[in-house]
Simulated scan of single mutants.
Amino acid sequence: MGISEERAGYLENLCRQFRIDVITQLYAVQTGHPGGSLSVCEILTALYFEKARNNPQNPNDPGRDRIILSKGHAAPMLYRILAERGYFPADDLKTLRQFGSHLQGHPCSHGTKGVEVPTGPLGLGLGVAVGKALSLQLDKNPAYVYCILGDGELNEGTIWESAMSASKFKLDNLIVIVDRNHVQLDGTDEEIMPLLDLGKKFDAFGFRTFSCEGHSIADICDTIDRAKDVRSMPSVIIAETVKGKGVSYMEGQNAWHGNPINSQYFERAIKELEATH
């Protein structure tokens, strides 16, 4: 299956525009999370535009794949992609994190089309994903559940409790994708809580483990196809990414987990992103 070189190039160029637009939004409202939004861009783009069944005209289609952004602070990128897919008007993006807006600081399924479940407290998304995957399995519904985790939230014990359940119930319709950017709120993962060999951890919890280049649309799509071939066990894709990808002063820096962007930094970011091909 895979993806054609032309299609991958188109989507990667779209990602460049998404990054420009998200930085512009966050600068305008002076609040939000730039670092994790930029790192998850290609992962979400590959899912919503290529690999996951989703229908903006019928967001509650029983046959849709369920996409859960457990790292809910990356909502600005999710919203930009949902608007591009047609779930709601692009003009709504101007209301990000404003009082009365349906585009809250963390995704909420009440009022925001395309958001599967509310996410905010880190570590909760995988448990919901396991429940949905088990429900689909019992209903003999062939839909997949995709759960995007931040590597910082893997510090949470509830992640590993959920992982054990996914393995116990042989949820081969569950594909977990870890946005492995190696940085969390207060520092690097290695400084705060080392994850060591993450692949071996998931192996030990009964997952089929894959890895990919998290900023390559083609590699992400190919790896998702391989995960779909797995039977009788859940899969995890460890996508190696860069926090703040595309903006040099943000890349790999925990300071840009949630800092507002001033005019000097904004102009520099847009200049760098516009020069990217």
Rank of each mutant, 00 (worst) to 15 (best):
M1H: 12
G2N: 11
I3E: 00
S4Y: 06
S4T: 15
E6P: 05
G9C: 05
N13H: 11
L14W: 10
C15I: 06
R19E: 11
I20N: 08
V22W: 08
Y27L: 09
Q30A: 13
T31E: 10
G32C: 14
G32T: 14
G35N: 09
S37H: 06
L38T: 10
S39H: 06
S39P: 08
S39M: 10
V40R: 01
T45S: 14
L47Q: 06
F49A: 03
A52D: 11
N54E: 15
N54D: 15
N55H: 15
P56C: 08
N58R: 09
N58W: 07
P62G: 07
G63F: 14
R64H: 12
D65S: 05
I67Q: 00
L69P: 08
L69A: 08
L69S: 04
K71C: 09
K71R: 14
G72I: 06
P76L: 10
P76M: 11
P76R: 06
L78C: 08
L82Q: 06
E84T: 13
R85T: 12
D91T: 15
L93A: 02
L93R: 01
K94P: 04
L96C: 03
L96E: 02
L96K: 00
Q98W: 08
F99I: 15
S101C: 07
Q104V: 05
G105I: 10
H106A: 09
C108P: 01
S109L: 07
G111D: 11
T112S: 13
G114A: 11
E116L: 08
G120D: 11
G120P: 04
P121Q: 07
G123I: 04
G125R: 00
V130D: 00
K132Q: 13
L134S: 03
L136R: 09
K140Y: 05
A143T: 13
Y144M: 11
Y146R: 02
Y146C: 03
D151P: 01
G152T: 09
G152C: 06
E153A: 03
E153L: 02
G157I: 11
A163R: 02
S165C: 05
S165V: 09
F169T: 09
F169C: 10
I175K: 01
I177V: 15
I177T: 10
V178T: 12
D179M: 11
R180A: 13
H182D: 14
Q184P: 04
D186G: 13
E191N: 11
E191W: 09
I192C: 04
F202I: 14
A204G: 12
G206C: 08
S211P: 02
E213T: 11
I217W: 00
D219I: 05
C221N: 01
C221D: 01
C221M: 04
D225R: 02
D229R: 15
V230F: 03
R231A: 12
P234W: 06
V236A: 03
I237V: 14
I238Q: 02
I238R: 01
A255L: 12
W256Y: 15
G258K: 05
N259Q: 13
I261N: 06
Y265H: 13
Y265F: 07
A269G: 07
A269Y: 08
I270R: 01
K271N: 13
K271D: 15
K271T: 15
E272V: 12
E272A: 12
